[in-house]
Amino acid sequence: MTLRTFSILFLCLLLAGCSSSGTWGWYVIDPTTKQGYNNIRFLLNGFGATILLSIIAAVLSMCIGLIVALPGMSHNRWLRMPSRIYIEFIRAIPLLPMLFWVFYGLPVVLKSMGINANIDAFWGAIITLAISDSAFTAEIYRSGIQSINKGQTEAAKTIGLNYSQTMRYIILPQAIKRILPPLANQFIYIVKMSAFASVIGMQELTRRANELVVTEYRPLEIYTLLILEYLVLVLIISFGVRWLERKMGADESK
């Protein structure tokens, strides 16, 4: 009962907004008008950058995470330590300060080392997201790999497989099913955190929304659309992962 009342109220508010005479001003992104159409196109064009940014950062983070995680499980303390330090250190840095450091600070560091590298907003954001996230993916790998029975490693050893063969043919194919769900979680997190790239001028979804708000003075409508844009993106990823999990799960029960 209350739910219905609320949805009717919400709908009324929304519809009232469309008339542009009230407090809502949907005209700003009304695709039937020329101005609204251009505005919407401007906002939706941010999808490309957000998606590209997220995918590259996620792939990098998965690679770095694996490189960090593997020595972290060694019996050798000197191999294990750098991995632990990396994870604890990176995990402790908030994303925004790290982004500033990479974008404004890293080029100075590189220059002092004689490397003249110009880090643009796109790569600055990717490096930051990838490194910041890699500490978490490393922990995901570790828990996934360590959940595989020790007998598997021993059996692999007795038929003569070396470490990398054991990882490749025995451990990782089994661990991936347990790693995938938390890794997908991490990917969703990257997509959302990519919004921070807006503060260093990356033209992705959030930056475009901000810029349009400055010219149109319609924050409510524009940010509502922005949230819906992320919602769509995340839902698509969720469904994709569900599908993948089902497919792999089916293989396992075969």
Binding site: G151, A155, I159, Y169, Q174
Partner: peptide
């Protein structure tokens, strides 16, 4: 060669793949 109490077969591989992995890779 070693045989374990808990078999320790590779559950993601078929019986034949369990048997051919060592000979082909090693």
């Amino acid at each position: 060669g070693m045989v374990f109490q808990q078999f320790n077969l590779f559950p993601h591989l078929s019986v034949l793949q369990n048997l051919t992995l060592g000979p082909t890779k090693v």
